[in-house]
Design a protein around this nucleic acid. Structure first.
Length: 117
DNA sequence: CCCCTGACGACGC
DNA sequence: AGCGTCGCCAGGG
């Protein structure tokens, strides 16, 4: 699959983030940095997380599949309940201990690698 | 129009 | 190896 949008132009780059997040396969997770890198804003992973913060306005955004580069569920506090993010991930077969994704490398999904491969 | 904030990441100490 | 700071960009007050 080709790049969603090589560069942010007319619309907000938020749309790009949403598009990538929607592409995350079931049972997989990715990182803010990976998405940021894919969008070309490698140095600004914060924007990705921020975009996800606004993702609650967009339907069908599996934001629970996005964690930081350590595999930590930093955004769980932004869900309806602090445990919802973990619940959703565990429902996909992802083991989480102490807000840390187990076998993170195994479930990690890199858009730059998977989408361009 | 200026200032602050924000779900991160890399480097420095 | 753990904690602290800076950089980064965009949106909101």
């Amino acid at each position: 699959m080709s790049k969603i949008r090589a560069k942010k132009t007319d619309s907000s780059f938020f749309q790009d983030v949403y598009a990538v997040v929607r592409l995350i396969p079931f049972g997989r997770v990715t990182t803010y940095g990976a998405i940021a890198e894919y969008l070309g804003t490698r140095l600004s992973a914060r924007m990705v997380g921020w975009a996800l913060n606004c993702s609650h306005t967009q339907p069908n955004i599996p934001a629970h599949r996005v964690v930081n580069r350590k595999g930590m569920l930093t955004g769980k506090h932004f869900f309806a309940t602090p445990t919802q993010m973990q619940e959703l991930l565990e429902a996909e077969g992802i083991k989480i201990i102490n807000d840390q994704v187990q076998n993170f490398e195994q479930v990690f999904w890199n858009p730059s690698k998977e989408l361009e491969l």
